[in-house]
């Protein structure tokens, strides 16, 4: 059953949206979504790596020997992650400082390796690019939403702009580690509720 490019792209936004549907890549999802800005930054960095690694893995799929394919994928992914890391250091240094160790950790993000192994190694370059872009945008949306919800309740602001006004008493647990789990759980629950109808 061949899908169109649009279908490959759209599936990443809802049907296979990484943290909620595939429940993959939870480490950055839980750790960096203290604010919407961090969530989107992390999402975009991952999306970039996903698209580039998908394209390269797909175009090299006929020459990479099956026995060492994982090693090859890791080299490709690690290269793009380092590219992202250098670019972030050079152009968005404050964001680089807040995301810190989670940027190099994109290398071991199972979404990226998962898409390389499950999709890009079996499909054409254009399809793989669409798949990477879809999953990447989906990941960004998910992290952005989660970050927005946590930031809104935890600090009363969105993207640093106060929403609730000074009388709001911040629900501080939302920007701490337990808040990440609570928020993710509730969002998964909501997704299932809407999705199962």
């Amino acid at each position: 059953m061949a899908k169109t490019i649009t279908q490959e792209f759209v599936k990443g936004l809802w049907e296979e949206i990484p943290p909620f549907r595939l429940v993959l890549g939870l480490c950055p999802t839980l750790a960096v979504t203290k604010s919407m800005e961090n969530g989107i930054g992390m999402g975009l960095a991952t999306a970039f790596v996903l698209v580039c690694s998908n394209i390269l893995v797909s175009s090299l799929r006929s020459i990479i020997p099956p026995k060492i394919r994982i090693a090859c994928y890791i080299i490709i992914i690690a290269t793009f992650v380092t590219v992202v890391q250098l670019l972030m250091q050079a152009y968005t240094y404050p964001l680089y400082l807040t995301l810190g160790i989670f940027i190099p950790l994109i290398v071991v993000n199972c979404i990226v390796l998962g898409r390389a192994e499950a999709f890009a190694s079996k499909n054409s370059v254009i399809m793989s690019a669409a798949d990477g872009l879809g999953i990447g945008v989906g990941f960004t949306l998910a992290l952005g939403t989660l970050g927005a919800v946590r930031e809104l309740f935890g600090t009363g602001a969105i993207m640093g702009h106060a929403v609730f006004g000074p009388s709001y008493h911040p629900f501080t647990i939302m920007v701490q580690a337990p808040g990440a789990f609570i928020c993710l759980g509730l969002m998964l629950c909501l997704m299932n509720l809407v999705g199962n109808k």
């Binding site: 490709i76 290269t79 380092t82 250091q89 240094y93």
Partner: peptide, 29 residues
């Protein structure tokens, strides 16, 4: 051969990028 070629290309690309961005990173730091 393939692993070596891939690693070499990767290393070359990163070294080039590193030297290109070094000055800017230093000033950002």
């Amino acid at each position: 051969i393939i692993l070596t070629a891939l690693s070499t290309l990767s290393g070359g690309l990163l070294a080039a990028l590193k030297s290109r961005t070094q000055e800017r990173i230093d000033s950002q730091v």
